[in-house]
Design a binder for these strands. Structure first.
Lengths: 356, 356
DNA sequence: CCGTTCTGATAATACGTATGATCAGTGGTT
DNA sequence: AACCACTGATCATACGTATTATCAGAACGG
């Protein structure tokens, strides 16, 4: 950060304030406030004439209340914070966040919320830090948390701090409101489907992470396999995907699998390319299934048979849930505030009957 | 103002305030503030012991200043508003905004700004309205304006209202600070290049819009052509692109052009497909040049020879410029605050020598 | 005519932070 | 002793809005 930075001085051009409106309309500041907020009833009696007069002045001068002052006075600001553990827009992370944000944005538009992106959070080890000395969480009415992995410590601190928030994606941490994708059931279905197509030799490759969304998919795989045949499950390799393309391929070959479940589409893509290189026909000799939508970065990918988490809907529903929480207060029993949305199953072209 | 406004009540869980810290550290609130803001000098004398003691309490309780209160007290909030005339994240507009926002976000991270996306602005005729009764422009220190077209009225109002802002993209309106792409010179170069390759029959198709960025490209085309040969320019059609694929194609055919300058990559894409359909070889029989980067939505596009506006850089530089304005105050002479960045010229594969 | 209720509007205050003005004390100088 | 310079810290106030309590006057009922 450049060092002239902190010298920022808001040479505030004097704001248009309620007091000035009051002077112009020949009333008191209180009256203006009451008119602005459309109050009426026993405690705020304003006859139509006066109201009109004030409204006219307000209109003419394009008055807008200072949100900071409102906030300080205890009024919600219709401001939702959005925290992403990684930069949200760059190409690498775009596929993941962009869809979610599309949903969030659309819903924000509908519900009348503005979005506060916490981009100033200092980056530590490639990840943004939620709780830093100058975090601005409180500026927002509540906050959405996005990220493959979310620090459990952060979640606990938010919960114990009574801060209204919603995590996007299922979370293991206690009392965390979230909206996630139902990966378990989705993967179970995919396993069933492959099984019915005659596959018996499976391989599951997944990313090396503790993320709940990945764990859920593994869980779904295990459940699906054990529903089909527990003894086969026992011989089925479930491994972290290798780093290099070649190693990945040898994982596939040495497993002897007829169908690979690649949790990460990027891995599916690499495997597919290696298959071509090694003259292995996909899907006739090897079926590939992936458990998320592929990145747009990988062109020339086949139309993978896959699980498609409803990312836009996840974003939209998260915001809706947060709005609910904001209105009805922090929930005691968060179980009511934990939502799982079904994944779509995309047929694609990379899963066909196993060869006999 | 909508009437749900007041119904949302922040059941504020009592904040951790400077006063409480003060009690715990046995000092006054003022002292805490001074420590928090790291003040020193003649007007704020705090001996190391006291400072340490206060810092320790601050640390232990994880105190964070209320941004609303700070803002009210006149401190800049390091908050930059981002206004897009269309939704920023959806696929249709993603190509345009996403690159810009990537740059903005990266720079915001560097300069320590948070971003406020004005998503609550009501949509009128498919476009968001900047000045609406509940606009929250003032919540931000300043604002970035994104959009192919920007209402001149909005710009004037911002200027006359002394509101710090920067438009992304060159603007005709007086006294508007902006960071834009130098389309004129870029297109001139492209014209020269085509000319040197022997092309004499040109066609320029552009979108039907008053947007400055489009006008600049047309201007560049005209300048380039007239530098080559004014008499040929006079015979060169410069038209609004037709709506349908077929009409577009007949525009191309009837012009007899050996090279088409398609301002909008989407048009280039359609023309390319029609060419294939009509067994016209691109680029050997028809060269195609486009004046922006193609959308990722159109797959199977060739590698168009094109002008590539530095969108990420545009975003980053806009934020930098706005930051400068915030520090040094609203400029009187905005000429110093109008920046044009050079476009990159991508060679691509769709412009080759004209047939003799 | 007096107490009561109702009406229209305002005064006063709270929200949490930043900062210029101020104050009490201390040590030094003439 | 009177004056000054300096230190450590606090007081008081401003920022703009929301809201409660209050007030002056009118209308009303007995």
């Amino acid at each position: 950060m450049p060092d002239w930075w902190w010298s920022v001085n808001m040479s505030t051009p004097r704001r248009l304030t309620q007091r000035k409106i009051a002077e112009l309309a020949n009333v008191s500041q209180s009256t203006v406030s009451l008119v602005v907020n459309n109050k009426e009833g026993s405690s705020a009696r304003i006859p139509p004439e006066t109201r009109e007069r004030v409204l006219k002045v307000l209109q003419e001068h394009g008055y807008v209340a200072d949100p900071a002052a409102r906030s300080l006075a205890g009024v919600a600001n219709k401001l939702i914070g959005v925290f992403t553990y990684e930069a949200a827009f760059p190409a690498e992370t775009r596929d993941f966040y962009s869809e979610l944000l599309t949903g969030v944005e659309a819903q924000a538009e509908i519900l009348g919320y503005d979005l506060l992106m916490f981009t100033s959070a200092p980056v530590q080890d490639g990840r943004r830090e939620l709780f830093h000395p100058t975090n601005r969480l409180r500026l927002a009415d509540g906050c959405l948390l996005l990220g493959l992995e979310i620090e459990s410590a952060d979640l606990e601190r938010l919960v114990s701090g009574d801060y209204p928030f919603v995590a996007v994606g299922r979370r293991d941490t206690q009392n965390v409101p979230y909206v996630g994708a139902n990966y378990v059931d989705g993967v179970v279905q995919l396993v069933e489907k492959a099984w019915k197509l005659g596959h018996r030799k499976f391989l599951l490759l997944h990313r090396d992470t503790e993320a709940e969304s990945v764990a859920d998919r593994i869980r779904g795989f295990v459940r699906g396999m054990s529903e089909m045949d527990p003894s086969i499950l026992r011989q089925t390799p479930i491994s972290v995907a290798a780093r290099t393309s070649q190693d990945l391929w040898s994982q596939v070959v040495s497993s002897g699998a007829s169908v690979v479940f690649a949790e990460d589409p990027a891995h599916a893509s690499l495997i597919y390319r290696e298959a071509i290189k090694n003259s292995v026909d996909v899907p006739r000799e090897l079926s590939i299934v992936t458990l998320a939508d592929p990145s747009t970065l990988f062109e020339n990918d086949p139309d993978f048979t896959r699980l498609s988490p409803p990312r836009q809907k996840l974003g939209a529903e998260s915001l809706t849930l947060l709005a609910k929480i904001l209105i009805s207060g922090i929930p005691k029993n968060t179980a009511d505030y934990q939502l799982l949305l079904p994944c779509e199953l995309v047929s694609g072209k990379t899963l066909v009957a196993a060869r006999v």
